[in-house]
Design a protein around this nucleic acid. Structure first.
Lengths: 198, 198
DNA sequence: CTTTTTTCGATGCGCTTGTATCGGATCATA
DNA sequence: TATGATCCGATACAAGCGCATCGAAAAAAG
């Protein structure tokens, strides 16, 4: 048997390089040569991990989604939410909102991918599925929260979930554009969450 | 004197071609050759209107902003709002929200430009100024509405304006991604506006 | 009708991109 | 240690990009 390399790890490593490049200089800055240089590997290594660039972009998109999921789960665990649906909902919403300056890089990358997905059918499928998954999660949490009495009665789960997603996405855009700051975004999302409680 | 062409009109014509191409295939679809073909002129004509492509993109960005302004003013005039700040606020917010399927093309183009502005300092200045203008307008309208009694007392003008902008931007993203539809976006924005009234 | 100035459409150029190719280095196995 | 499959890094290549150039066409002025 010949030399063995950890493909999974390498793909992640490359995905992080792509994310960093995109958040700094947009899609056009993410060329194969720049990606290889940033990831610290050769161009040939990148080509062996992804047979085409489109396949790479799909993977990066999915990887970004997984990072978001990890961030959310980390928040839930760290907050000791247990199985309180309201606490889980709170941390989930916080996890997808730019709350500090450290969140700006992935927020920029997320915006670029969202724009790309709006005009590219293949990425649209990935983005759509990720967003629908988030939508379903929030719906379930809102319904459970209402049933448990932690949220206002009469709250429609799906409407509430949709509006929460719209708010966090909008905050992301507005923070990047400079109308909102991370501080006002934080206040805004806390106010929206507080308004759901009885 | 030699042949004369209407540069202003041509620039608008090219800007509309660029917007259409971007809303169909993203930034990468907007090459000089495609733009010229779509606008029905030669590549040389495009080059005489804009000395560089970046200058063209800035103009297109500004043009998109002017279209939005025109759409808002058209709504205000058509609704017979007069000088009622609440009615003007309502039509302004509606004007920047994707309410029907016809709004999807410019929503896509707007998202692409927002993403581009997040990573390109020159476009960022344009986008930032446009958004701040909108923010100031909404702030003034909210303050006037509160003073006139058409909006809830105790409403902070700047906070309310920021949140309205975040909502409309978020609705744009979510509609394009497929979580919201134009119908639910319409309901959502009307609900948000209704919540401001006393 | 001639002249002159601007616009037009086309072509060429240098550059960068994504992808394909290939000899040599590398390491588990026999 | 010899072997042979696998990975590496560099280079080659075609395509497409934005931009520059140039002769021909067109129209107002003499």
């Amino acid at each position: 048997m010949p030399k063995q390399v950890d493909h999974k790890a390498r793909r992640r490593q490359i995905a992080e390089a792509v994310t960093a490049l995109i958040s700094e200089g947009g899609l056009e800055a993410a060329t194969l040569r720049e990606i290889a240089a940033r990831a610290g590997v050769s161009m040939g290594a990148v080509q062996r991990c992804f047979s085409t660039k489109e396949e790479m972009m799909v993977f990066v998109h999915e990887h970004l989604g997984e990072l978001a999921t990890a961030q959310i789960e980390g928040r839930i665990a760290a907050s000791g939410a247990g199985d309180d649906p309201v606490a889980i909902l709170t941390e989930t919403v916080r996890g997808i909102t730019p709350l500090t300056a450290e969140d700006l890089p992935w927020t920029r990358a997320w915006l670029v991918f969202a724009a790309q997905a709006a005009t590219d059918p293949r990425l649209a499928a990935v983005q759509r599925e990720a967003n629908r998954g988030l939508f379903r999660l929030l719906s379930v949490l809102v319904r459970a929260g209402v049933d448990a009495g932690g949220l206002r009665a009469g709250l429609d789960p799906e409407t509430t979930a949709r509006d929460l997603l719209a708010l966090t996405d909008g905050l992301g855009v507005q923070v990047l554009v400079g109308v909102h700051t991370v501080a006002t975004a934080r206040e805004s999302v806390e106010r929206a969450l507080a308004a759901l409680r009885p």
